[in-house]
Every structure is written in structure tokens, then in C-alpha cells.
Design a binder for these strands. Structure first.
Length: 461
RNA sequence: UCCCCAUUAGCUCAGUCGGUAGAGCGGGUGACUGUUAAUCACCAUGUCCGUGGUUCGAGUCCGCGAUGGGGAGCCA
């Protein structure tokens, strides 16, 4: 009985009469005249195990007075519980107080608001909701890697520090070692030639361009790493630091790209339902009543595909009035996306082939000359969850597009080189990992699905 | 960044017509042989976000500021 058993294993595999050593934290302590019940949780599972402590314990007085949050080592014998509420419980033979918690412990045996828990983000993962969120987050991250590994995708670590600031994907956080009080100047401008990298650099806003380079050697690749945007966005869906998944496939077109996105999202839905079922049932009961049904629907659905042009026609014929105008050439607003996936299709739908003027320079120009091979995957309740495209693999059209949008081709010469030598049709997409977690858990604020959220004016912990 | 709303006990909130503040939970003490966010009894707890103003008198009305939340834009 020297080896520690995790609570999850004790509850799922333990048998009455088995002697166990458990370590964890007290979630609740209930004391009666002759018995004390402790709900012990070690993070391995949502449900704690009930520890039964009786006055024979040498330190019973100490145990009976334990506060919520205390860290304990408990030895005991597993037994069938005579009371309702749990099948198994641990009759304690010894309870060692490893780390006491006094009455100032900030989490009480009651429901707290997410806003309050954000102010104690260093403690909140000891609560039911955040325990479940971060277990699911971890399990899904591992499943993302399994999904791509099974398909032969190479996992590439693209740079965090980059000098690309011309993708138009968002504001860059500056990385510098220059003296901010007295930066070197050349003709009035800050002289980045004297900076650490001898040029202006920042934190990456996307690994896509480097990912494309790797796809031209390994065929199928993906990135999964931190991404940074210095936008002053104050919404429930934006963070300054988040994790993004970006697969890229050589010898692939837009249809292949949509096939991959569909298989990917369905796989993660299926996985969450099957392998995180206890936490998912908790979310379904406490956070979002229709969650399991909705995720089950996506896992089984065949995703529809619709051209942007058709989407515009459908929206124009819609018997509802939108706040924003619907016109060919305008971007779809959130209300339009929700209508298409919820009312028109009633399930996940890819909107494909958008007007070139509302999309990025690297997207492949279609034969009609006015649309590009872009796609957005829309799902009920949230709208866009995945955005991707086939990339422009032809050198001259790519240079032309760069000039149109004001990007100096020489500044991305290495990117253009892939179009010079052995260029292939290729495609990929991007998925914000936190938005996936929000979708799969029903949590409505991105600050509640990332351990220590970084948003404007916030970099605590 | 823009618009709207909020800020009262440790937490979640109530506070009427402007008259000097309350509940539940949590905490403390006690009771209870098996509880399940235990129950019961008693006890304690306030810079009413800050600041300036109106008023005999401001938690309450007005201005400014801070912080939080929701929405928008941008996007992942």
C-alpha cells in the first residue's frame, strides 16, 4: 500500500476491501458527532471520493476541523457506501494533513461567478467547472496530435519570433531589446538595424507562411502553438495570446481542405463525447443544456457545402431582416453566418469561394477572376469556427495580388521561392484552439477556457 | 476603440418616494451516529468603487474617473 492511487482509478477500478493510499485536496468537509466526511479530489476526475473519518483516528480533532482546500494524504480501505450518493468510499485509517487551508480559502462550497473566479485564476482550477475545462482542454490537445499523426502529418514548430508583419492578419506585439527610454534613431525613425535581430521583429500572428514552406517538403504538415495578436479587442471571443492549429497539405485543393476540416471537427466532437463523458455530462447539466445533443449532431452530420454566391442569394431571400446589408462583395456578418448554418442548412456548412477583395492575398484566384478559393466552416450557435483556403501556387498571379494589396514582393522572397521551384497546388486552414474548446464545452468566454488569459490590460499570474 | 449596463458584508444579491443598510450562502461557537452545496440554534462582519457637486440630509440624484460585464468592429 505504498504506491499512490489516483481518485479516478480508485472509483473506476477499486474493489471493496482494497487498501489504498490517496492524495488530494478536500473539496468539502462535513462533520457530525461521530463521523466526518471529506470529499477528496486530486484532479484526475470530476467526482471526488468520499473519505470517512471516525474518532478512532489519532488526530480526529484536527481532521474534523479541516477547512475546504486542505491538502491531504489518506490511507484506508475501500468499502461499499451504506448511504446514497456514491457506490464506494474510503474508510480512513490515517489522514495526514500535508498542507492546511484556513477559513480565508477563497473558494467556498457554493457557486461562484466566472467573473469572480477569473480574479483568482491561480485557484479556480480547483473548482468543478474549471477542473472539467482544463481536463477537456488537455485531452483534446492530445487528440489533435493523434488525429494528425495517424494521417501522416508532420508536426512543425514554426517560429514564435518573426519579422513578418505584412500578412495583414493582425497587430504585432513588438519584440525588442532596444532601450525604450532612448532608442537609436536614423533620420528620425527608430533604427531597428541596431536591435537584437538587426530588424524589426514581433511575436507571430500565424505560422501559416512557414507552414506552407514545410508542406512543400513533407506534403502534409500542421502547426499547433501559441499565437499573439496585439489588437485592442475586448470581447468574449478574443485573447492576445491563444493557441492555433494550422494544417497545410501539398497536392491538395479546396475540396481536399474541406474534407480534412470536416473529418477533423467530427473526430474531436466524437472524442469529447466518448472520452470526456463525465466532464461533458457536467457541462451539459450545468453550463449549456443542449450541448451534448448539439455536439452529437455535428459528429454525425454530413457537412453541407455552399458557394458564397449562393449564400448571398439565400440571405437575400431570407424572410428575416438583418442589421447589416447583404450584397455580393460584402463580407458575411455574424448574424448572416448564424442564419445560414442554423436556419438554411440546420447543421455545419462550408461557405466557399469568396470575393477576392475581402480575403487575403495568398488565396488562390479562381478562373472567374473575381473570387478566391477560400472557405469558412460555420456551425450552429457560434458561426465561423474554421477558416481556410487553397493557396495561390502560381508565381505571377501571386505577385500580382501582393502588388494589388500593397505588399512588396521582395519582402517575402522566400515565400515566393516555393512558387519558383517545385510549386504544388496546396491548401490549409486555421482553427483557434480556445474557440474549439468553447464550442465543445459550452463555455461562453474565451477567458474561461485558457489557464491565464491575456487580454487588453490583463497579464496577471 | 465605440455603445450600453453594473459596482452595497468574504461570495451572490436586495435596498421602495433622498431620512444614516439587509437577506441567503460562507465564517465562528454549540447541537446532531452516515452526511451529500448536510441540518438546527446563536454570534460577528460594511471606506455602500473613488472623487467632486446638489441637498437640512445621498447607497439612492448629477458630473468626472476607475474597474467589471454585455454588444459592435476586427478576427482565430
Amino acid at each position: 500500500m505504498t504506491a499512490r492511487t489516483r481518485v479516478k482509478q480508485a472509483l473506476s477500478e477499486g474493489r471493496p476491501g482494497e487498501a489504498l493510499l490517496l492524495k488530494g485536496w478536500a473539496r468539502t468537509v462535513r462533520t457530525g458527532k461521530g463521523v466526518t466526511f471529506i470529499s477528496l479530489n486530486d484532479g484526475s476526475t470530476l467526482a471526488g471520493i468520499q473519505v470517512v473519518a471516525e474518532p478512532e483516528l489519532a488526530n480526529y480533532a484536527e481532521v474534523a476541523a479541516l477547512g475546504t482546500g486542505s491538502a491531504l494524504t489518506v490511507t484506508g480501505v475501500l468499502q461499499e457506501s451504506p448511504a446514497a450518493g456514491q457506490e464506494l468510499e474510503l474508510k480512513a485509517l490515517s489522514v495526514e494533513v500535508v498542507g492546511a487551508a484556513d477559513q480565508e480559502y477563497p473558494m467556498q462550497k457554493k457557486r461562484h461567478s466566472f467573473e469572480y473566479l477569473r480574479t483568482i485564476a491561480h485557484m479556480r482550477m480547483r473548482s468543478n467547472t474549471f477542473g472539467a475545462v482544463f481536463r477537456v482542454r488537455s485531452a483534446l490537445a492530445q487528440e489533435v496530435h493523434r488525429f494528425f499523426a495517424e494521417r501522416g502529418f508532420l508536426y512543425v514548430h514554426t517560429p514564435i519570433i518573426t519579422a513578418n508583419d505584412c500578412e495583414g492578419a493582425g497587430e504585432l506585439f513588438r519584440v525588442t531589446t532596444l532601450d525604450l527610454d532612448n532608442p537609436p534613431r536614423l533620420e528620425g525613425e527608430i533604427d531597428f538595424a541596431q536591435d537584437f535581430f538587426a530588424k524589426a521583429t514581433g511575436l507571430t500572428v500565424s505560422g501559416q507562411l512557414e507552414g506552407e514552406l514545410f508542406a512543400q517538403a513533407f506534403s502534409d504538415i500542421y502547426t499547433f502553438g501559441p499565437t499573439f495578436r496585439a489588437e485592442n479587442s475586448n470581447t468574449a471571443r478574443h485573447a492576445a495570446e491563444f493557441w492555433m492549429i494550422e494544417p497545410e497539405m501539398a497536392f491538395a485543393d479546396l475540396s481536399d481542405d474541406a474534407d480534412l476540416a470536416e473529418a477533423f471537427l467530427k473526430r474531436l466532437c466524437r472524442f469529447a463525447l466518448d472520452n470526456c463523458d463525465e466532464d461533458m455530462r457536467f457541462f451539459n447539466a450545468q453550463i449549456d443544456k443542449g450541448l451534448v445533443e448539439r455536439i452529437e449532431g455535428v459528429a454525425q452530420a454530413s457537412f453541407a457545402r455552399m458557394d458564397y454566391g449562393e449564400a448571398i442569394e439565400r440571405l437575400k431571400k431570407a424572410p428575416v431582416s438583418f442589421q447589416f446589408p447583404v450584397e455580393w462583395g460584402l463580407d458575411l456578418q455574424s448574424e448572416h453566418e448564424r442564419y445560414l448554418t442554423e436556419q438554411v442548412v440546420g447543421g455545419p456548412v462550408f461557405i466557399m469561394n469568396y470575393p477576392k477583395d475581402i480575403k487575403a492575398f495568398y488565396m488562390r484566384l479562381n478562373d472567374d477572376g473575381r473570387t478566391v478559393a477560400a472557405m469558412d466552416l460555420l456551425v450552429p450557435k457560434v458561426g465561423e469556427i474554421i477558416g481556410g483556403s487553397q493557396r495561390e501556387e502560381r508565381l505571377e498571379p501571386l505577385i500580382g495580388r501582393m502588388r494589388e494589396v500593397g505588399i512588396e514582393p521582395d519582402s517575402l522572397s522566400w515565400y515566393l521561392d516555393t512558387r519558383r521551384w517545385g510549386s504544388t497546388p496546396h491548401a490549409g486552414f486555421g482553427l483557434g484552439f480556445e474557440r474549439l474548446i468553447m464550442y465543445l464545452t459550452g463555455m461562453e468566454n474565451i477567458r474561461d477556457v485558457i489557464p491565464f488569459p491575456r487580454t487588453p490590460r490583463h497579464a496577471e499570474f
